[in-house]
Design a protein around this nucleic acid. Sequence first.
DNA 1: CTAGGATCCTGTCAGC
DNA 2: TGCTGACAGGATCCTA
Length: 309
Amino acid sequence: MPELPEVETIRRGLGKFIISHRLISTEILCEKSFIGTPIVGKVKAIRRFGKALVIDLNNCQSLMIHLRMTGQLIFDSTQNTDRYAAGHPSDNFTSTLPNKQTRVILHFDNGTLYFNDQRKFGFVKSITTKDIEKDSFIKKLAPEPWDIKLEDFYEKLQRHKNSPIKTVILDQTIICGLGNIYADESLFMSNIHPMRKAGTLTKTEANILLNMADKAMNIAIASGGSTMKDYVKADGTRGDYLDKFAQVFNRTGKPCVVCGTKIEKIKVAGRGTHICPHCQQLPQSKFQPSAELSSEINLSPHKGASKNA
DNA sequence: CTAGGATCCTGTCAGC
DNA sequence: TGCTGACAGGATCCTA
């Protein structure tokens, strides 16, 4: 489920294997999955831009890798039996490679890096290092939650005031790094219903949402995202890595960790969305005249979140 | 400009 | 068992 925490996990984990090692050759098993011309050279650094990974070589060339929905990176060491696997969890993590889903194979002087991708949405792209920031995807990326200024975020919510808040936070040009899982998790942690129109959030709520997005992703990064270690239990059975940190995602029908209400799955802008119907309520659906009006009247019996900021 | 839906592709799973 | 349709962690492109 390559969202930011997983890509960051890969960046850190893969670095231990390939930094200062040489990329020797490339096998392209699916034309669509490799953009540009294969390159060779010694790995200098691995960087991350949102959900994109960039491997810099020492000759001013780089590989940009985006896993999209189902991409995986699996490194097999030739020196020992070590395997490092991360990305979209599947049995590929433990099976023999290459297999049917292997799209690109990168040969290093100390092992083999497999790029697997069931749905072929992801890609590996060769690019001159200095042009990374000019890449059409990377140049549009918004800052990550911990770098966003509340004022800027709030202003963007106003610009997309009629869109559901979930759609807005999935937009990488507004806030970078959230995918379907962490969008649901962040909204749950903020007690905000995903269908709320972005323009109805108060500045206080926007601030909470930023903080929760930060928190959700940092918890996930700290716990290592979806690595092989977490996916495969000690006894070899398949584990559910989501159990570690998901409070609503994929927990349809299970009790809310806060109030015990059953988690529901709904659809927001075409994406499966998980909510606790008790903790995340839409502000009064039918009986209020309009969203504009109800945001002016402070309906909350608690201390106002509306006055000055 | 924004908002919404279709689309890229393959695999899996529920229902008949 | 075999078929069909819905759906899947992302992002872009097209339409209104």
